[in-house]
Design a protein around this nucleic acid. Structure first.
Length: 121
DNA sequence: GGGCTGACCTACT
DNA sequence: CAGTAGGCCAGCC
């Protein structure tokens, strides 16, 4: 059994913690998609379960759950829900700009951050 | 055990 | 850009 198989199949116990760690290290003013969080946590196919973990995370740990959005740059709550409103507010406080209900992933996302490191603003 | 459900994703029309 | 289809997998009846 190689390392990838081991991580993918049997390392469940630590996975919650990996996700929490990844999310907790997203800098203010930036966002990651669920898929990116899953990849960085070591399990690419688990994008869907990242949301479950976030929902179940204890409030006491102050996880910046609002910095995780979907791959379209949109908030994954119904637009009329209070959760959607809360998440949008918190992101706007951190400086993100919403256009037609979406943020610019090229600017605030993982790739955007890397590009700016390489190319400057 | 079996079917449904999701704060999802990618690829394709 | 919008809508669909298939894949994914832990949790909850």
């Amino acid at each position: 059994m190689n390392l990838h198989q081991k991580i993918g199949k049997t390392d469940d116990g630590n996975w919650h913690q990996s996700v929490w760690k990844v999310v907790s290290e997203i800098p203010s003013g930036h966002v990651l998609t669920y898929g990116e969080v899953a990849r960085l946590a070591g399990i690419p196919s688990a994008a869907r379960r990242v949301s479950q973990v976030l929902r179940r995370a204890p409030r006491s740990m102050g996880l910046p759950w609002h910095r995780v959005i979907n791959a379209q740059g949109r908030i994954s709550f119904p637009e009329d829900s209070s959760g959607w409103q809360r998440q949008k507010d918190m992101l706007e406080v951190e400086g993100l700009v919403f256009l037609n209900g979406k943020v610019d992933l090229e600017r605030y996302g993982y790739r955007g951050a890397v590009d700016r490191l390489l190319w400057g603003e």
